[in-house]
Design a protein around this nucleic acid. Structure first.
Length: 573
DNA sequence: TGCGAGACTTGGAAAAATCTTA
DNA sequence: TAAGATTTTTCCAAGTCTCGCA
């Protein structure tokens, strides 16, 4: 077999790779013994441009603080954020708070940001028009900083950090109908940052003169290097600074995740028969547990934790409402709800008759806004799962089903003679099935229709030249001179035949490309690749079928899944 | 038991990088 | 060889799930 993957060569006796170590220290308890890093860095200060805002036609000069916020709004103009009601309302509320109560600015509608927006646009153009040389210099400067402070040292090993620059201030872009979208994210200071380093390691120097970190801790039971929380936004989550995906911390956890899903594979038959028992004969609580788990297993739904009022109103399995389900003939149901990131889940499926009957009962006598599964919680469901395996939880089913589906689909491959491109397409088709199962969507790309038309035109051209060649060939066969002899057509019968073969391939490739583009229009393939499908399935398949791994895993994924790159061709999930 | 804090994974959009094409 | 298309990476929002506390 050819060497398909460029891997670091192992030296004799060397075992510095965590995935090759027989005995891993108990990672579930203590994560590290020594931890050293440079802390975080802050985005550059705001540089005022002194362009006024116009209010009722009158130029109003702004303080730097007001101006910065006005500039954020200006950069939103022309996007859908500008007209999004909640975003607009919250922004107005928070923007007006920056002015004293006797200030004449009282309403966003009367604010004219045109001049600032022009400035923002001009800045964009300048950035876009940078010469390649400038871009290169910028990139190199960035890399230098990254090289200097973008790494930490964990137990003596140098590891990449994923996010050393703290989040810049700006407008909070909550998805869907997030009730707080449009709020102002504050500029963070060192006094907002808690640093985590080893007790005997150097505490990173605060990069802002005259300031100090909020706190320095030595917590070896966690993997974060620092955390912060926006001091102004009560609803905002804590943000952590972690090592990059290629690190041991992330890689080991990732591997453990897939191993857990593999364990589930061994238990799945028993679990399925158990939840079918619950579905059929137990009491109401158990009926709901069994039914919910059935949906999670069959449809790869998320578990659906309760949400607070400060979040968008989305649901998962346990939080489904009566309004999200409708019943069809032949034991079919339609689920229609907004899931994570307010992505719509809309699916009509045939389900088990007992489940169908249960669901109908759960809905009986309830209002549209009431919970379908009112007797269970995500905690009680996960507790039920713990009876099968200590570490089992609902999300493992998504990992398990995604991986099993990929493996099953890839196993159907039986044409090693295919071109690599066709093999990759086969893989992509399998990937897409998984993405559809997990409901990973993306919005239709800009200009999609135009691009499709262009491709259709090209295909038409190709078909035309093919038929031209075929006519030309007939000319040879009937010993007549072809009609289009003036055009550049092959001068011999043999060459014409060859040209026809080439043209046919070209047509076929174009058709495939066109179909792929259309099929992938709203399907996001990356999420399942990055998070759900065990990479070892992909690596083994690639090795078996002589597909270079870089055709399916780009650089970042290859280093994220470095632990899976040595997988044997015979490996199975 | 219910709840919120805390830590970690998962997610789509946008930016940046790279490839393709006229 | 620049513009456009496509792929890859970055960004940061939004999930899951455990744990400790009242």
């Amino acid at each position: 077999m050819t060497e398909l993957v460029n891997l670091p060569k192992k030296r004799k006796g060397e075992s510095t790779n965590w995935w090759e170590e027989d005995e891993l220290d108990d990672f579930s308890i203590q994560k590290w013994k020594s931890l050293e890093h440079h802390g975080v860095i802050f985005p550059p200060d705001y540089i005022p441009h002194s362009i006024p805002l116009f209010y009722d036609g009158e130029a109003i000069s702004l303080t730097p603080e007001q101006e910065e916020v006005a500039t954020w709004w200006s950069s939103v103009i022309g996007t859908e954020w500008e007209t999004k009601e909640i975003f607009r309302k919250n922004f107005e509320h928070n923007f007006l708070k920056l002015f004293t109560s006797d200030h004449k600015i009282k309403s966003l509608d009367k604010c004219d940001f045109k001049k600032i927006a022009e400035y923002v646009e001009a800045q964009r153009e300048i950035k876009k028009a940078r010469l390649p040389e400038e871009k290169k210099q910028e990139r190199e400067a960035k890399q230098k900083i990254d090289e200097e402070i973008g790494y930490g040292i964990v137990d003596g090993k140098r590891e990449k950090i994923s996010n050393i620059i703290v989040e810049p201030p700006g407008l909070f872009r909550g998805r869907g109908q997030h009730p707080k979208a449009g709020y102002i994210k504050a500029r963070l200071r060192p006094e907002d940052i808690t640093i985590n380093v080893g007790k005997s390691n150097l505490v990173p120097k605060c990069p802002v003169p005259g300031h100090a970190w909020k706190n320095v801790v030595h917590n070896s039971y966690v993997t974060w290097l620092a955390y912060y929380k926006d001091p102004e936004l009560s609803f905002s989550n804590v943000k952590y600074v972690y090592l990059a995906a290629s690190s041991k911390f992330k890689g080991l956890n990732d591997k453990l995740k897939y191993e857990k899903a593999r364990k589930l594979r061994g238990l799945i038959d028993g679990i399925r028969s158990d939840y079918f028992d619950k579905i059929k004969k137990d009491n109401q609580v158990n009926k709901q547990l069994g039914t919910a788990l059935y949906l999670i297993d069959k449809l790869a739904l998320r578990v659906g934790n309760e949400k607070t009022e400060d979040e968008a109103d989305t649901v998962g399995c346990c939080s489904l409402k009566v309004s999200n389900i409708s019943f069809k003939e032949n034991y079919q149901i339609t689920l229609d709800f907004l899931g994570k990131d307010s992505m719509r889940y809309f699916n009509t499926v045939s389900i088990d008759p007992n489940v169908h009957e249960n669901l109908k009962k759960f809905v009986e006598g309830k209002g549209q806004d009431e919970e379908l599964f009112d007797l269970i919680t995500t905690s009680s469901l996960n507790e039920y799962l713990k009876t099968f395996m200590k570490s089992l939880s609902a999300k493992v089913f998504r990992t398990y089903n995604a991986s099993v589906t990929l493996q099953m689909l890839l196993a159907k491959f039986n044409n090693k003679k295919m071109q690599v491109e066709e093999k990759v397409q086969f893989y992509t088709d399998a990937n897409r099935e998984v993405a559809i199962l997990c409901n990973h969507q993306k919005s239709t790309p800009k200009n999609f229709e135009v691009q499709m038309e262009k491709m259709q035109d090209k295909l038409k051209d190709k078909l035309e030249s093919l038929s031209l060649l075929e006519t030309h060939l007939k000319g040879f066969l009937s010993k007549k001179i072809a009609q289009n002899a003036d055009k550049k057509l092959p001068t011999s019968e043999e060459n014409t035949r060859k040209a026809i073969v080439r043209a046919k391939t070209s047509v076929k490739n174009m058709e495939i490309k066109l179909k792929m583009k259309d099929d992938n229009k709203t399907i996001a393939l990356g999420t399942s690749k990055i998070n759900y499908m065990d990479p070892r399935i992909t690596v083994a398949w690639c090795k078996n079928n002589e597909v270079p791994i870089e055709k399916v895993f780009p650089k970042a994924l290859r280093s994220k899944f470095i632990w899976a790159m040595y997988t044997e061709p015979a490996w199975e999930f």
